[in-house]
Amino acid sequence: MRSAWLLGAFVALVLLFLLGPLLIAIAVAFSSGERIGFPPPGLSLRWFADALGNEQFRDAAARSLWVALAATVISVVAGTGAAVALTQGQGRFAGRAWVQAFIMLPLAIPGIVLGLALLPTAIMLGLRPGFWATVLGHAVVGIPYSAYLVLAAFAQYDPALDRASASLGVGPWRSFLRVTLPLIRPGIVSAAICTFLLSFDNVALSLFLSRGDTLPLRLMQHIQFTATPAVAAASVMLVLLSLGAMLMLGRVLRGRGTIRIAG
């Protein structure tokens, strides 16, 4: 019993640690002052109005949203495919270990290194800095996370189901759609959330592959010169939007059975 109490206290401390800076950022967003500082001199909604009225922030938010959506779709499709390839049929095929290492390798490269190397490569392939260059760059870092999360979902998967389905005469593709996919859905959902967040927050790759117009870059440019609470206000609004979107997503999915976030 006492150990449970200790654990509870520890968890409370960790919660404070995790959420502390966010609470501060929220407080700063409501500040009535001119500069980013805590505690705020007073409370006001002026910086929310400022952030909403800032055309560059609005355009950048929309742009980041589309980039993240496209990058997520690509990452999840590619990552799921990779996970299936690595587990299907006991996952034995020539070169499997190398393939898995290659798929996970983007995790090992610092973002700016990849960005610097990717810019001339993209140009060589006929892709100038802009929407698709950014999307594909984000997809490169999203694929390992996607693959890992779907692989983790496959760990619970019983291959006997595939054999049973085959012996019932269901073709491989339909079997995948009707049997495999629903069971690894939690993994796919967490892969989608993870890669979306990674793309939305990405700075290092966007610096070189975009035209300076994604949201984190605009926030950074703003901070580099003016550093007003508008940045915090923009972030708070985004958090509320994302939380809302995810709650809705969770409710829609929960209607189809239990969902475990970590697969």
Binding site: L18, L22, I24, A25, P216, L219, S235, L243
Partner: peptide
């Protein structure tokens, strides 16, 4: 999960304030 929703730049602002 929630800290991941906030841009790292804003999280750092929070840490600077702390």
């Amino acid at each position: 999960y929630t800290p991941l929703l906030v841009s790292v730049i804003v999280r750092v602002l929070g840490w600077i304030a702390i």
